[in-house]
């Protein structure tokens, strides 16, 4: 019974969180600014990281959450702060799948505006380090 209530709540919560997203606009911005490299379904290609069923892992820590905005593809994209926040929230809902293990607080335009002032220069090593940190926090729990 408790599981059923939790499930219903999860459905409703997801619906509420998605409230601020215009899915057509978000998908269009994803197509124009992300899809070329990350592929239509977020599966990536070659050296381009896979987002599908994976990108939510970063939300486990504060630095990881910030990383998704500071990564150059986000930070220096031609999208406005509000559009970038929307497309990131859309990616978490539509592409991250089961990799989201924490209660997701949607990105706001203000948060995105602040974080994208500090784009990352050296991404590959920083990303690997972040993922290692997240993995070690999770194995300790």
């Amino acid at each position: 019974m408790r599981t059923v209530i939790a499930f219903i709540c999860l459905l409703l919560c997801a619906a509420v969180a998605a409230g601020d997203i215009n899915p057509q606009r978000a998908q269009f911005n994803y197509q124009m600014s992300c899809q070329g490299c990350h592929a239509p379904d977020g599966s990536g290609a070659g050296a381009v990281p896979r987002m599908r069923d994976h990108v939510g892992v970063f939300l486990a820590t504060a630095a990881g959450r910030e990383y998704l905005v500071r990564v150059p593809g986000s930070a220096v994209s031609a999208l406005s702060d509000a559009d970038l926040a929307e497309v990131l929230n859309w990616i978490v809902l539509e592409i991250a799948g089961s990799s989201v293990q924490v209660a997701f607080e949607p990105y706001s335009a203000q948060e995105v505006a602040r974080l994208r002032q500090h784009p990352l220069n050296e991404v590959a090593r920083y990303r690997a380090q972040l993922l290692a940190e997240i993995a070690s926090t999770q194995s300790r729990e």
Partner: peptide, 21 residues
């Protein structure tokens, strides 16, 4: 190539803009 460049073009048949890969 799975990695592409993406833009929009206006379709003269219906006057709408489409996303082209």
């Amino acid at each position: 190539s799975p990695v592409t460049w993406i833009g929009t073009c206006r379709n003269p048949a219906d006057g709408r803009n489409y996303v082209i890969s």
